[in-house]
Design a protein around this nucleic acid. Structure first.
Lengths: 151, 151
DNA sequence: ACAAATCCCGAGTGGTATGGTATGATTAAT
DNA sequence: ATTAATCATACCATACCACTCGGGATTTGT
């Protein structure tokens, strides 16, 4: 069970935007360069992020992307679910139509639901602001000890 | 982010074995029939489960599979990790070699690790015995209300 | 001895998702 | 007009998933 690049790149891109909050629209190219992600590919990801209302875009020259909400309001759960669809360990949990012949009364289904809720809780407990703070702390600590902390 | 059938089928098969604990070796065919899983496919899954030490096998006629440990000692995290590999949201967390150029000091890596630990905790909080109890309770309740609970 | 039941093992396969490229259109600043 | 950027769509190679197939090897009943 692993996240695909969609979720991972998405979180990194949003984290990058959070670091540059207030700097006006950030062009995709600079995000892609800093995060070392294919620009064209990232385009597709950020496009769905825009449709879901997590980023705003400004077209044309000097355009780019900005967070549409405060970093405290965006969790990595939001980002990951937007890009990868709902966390669903079994089809019967997320899908509308249960194709399981055990139909409505299935014990294992209860378990998957339990797990799904647990994972969602974990993912939604981490906001972009949390990560930003962590990055700032790490950077300061790094400077004190004489090494560079890559952000 | 979803579990593949490996993990799902694996948990269901192990749950089935837990329900028949003490009945001697359970032939794969009966598990496959009850759980409606391809027998050959399940064979591959239970084979790795055997190699990982979660089930024991008895060969020959009247053979089959049995849990190698008590149901309280087997979590669905054990089963899922055995069949699907470690929960790794990013490669830099699970893999031995970090192919990320941000190398050792990466903030996002910290986040993935946090999430991974959270998910592992959720998965390891549910044992086969828990599911068995849930099944028994559900069955009794179903009988009281006059409907069949499928196990 | 023989047949049936069962586990064991590895190779092959069609479909789908992943992780992108390629090409071009649209919009806005200079 | 030119350049910088977002938007949109189509395409593609590869890998993985969810099996199937074809056979062994081993034990038990008769």
């Amino acid at each position: 069970m692993k996240l695909s690049t969609k979720g991972r790149y998405g979180v990194r891109a949003m984290f990058d935007l959070a670091l540059h909050e207030g700097d006006g629209p950030i062009p995709l190219r600079s995000i892609a360069e800093r995060q070392n992600i294919s620009e064209h590919y990232l385009e597709q990801l950020i496009s769905t992020l825009r449709n879901e209302g997590f980023v705003e875009s400004v077209r044309g020259a000097h355009g780019g992307y900005m967070l549409a909400k405060n970093p405290e309001e965006i969790t990595i759960g939001h980002i990951i679910r937007a890009l990868e669809g709902p966390i669903s360990l079994a089809d019967c949990v997320a899908g509308e139509e249960s194709n399981c012949d055990r139909s409505s009364n299935c014990v294992v289904e209860l378990v998957w639901n339990q797990v799904k809720e647990g994972i969602d809780e974990v993912l939604d407990s981490i906001t972009l602001e949390d990560i930003r703070q962590e990055a700032i702390n790490a950077k300061q600590e790094g400077e004190q000890h004489g090494y560079m902390y890559h952000i």
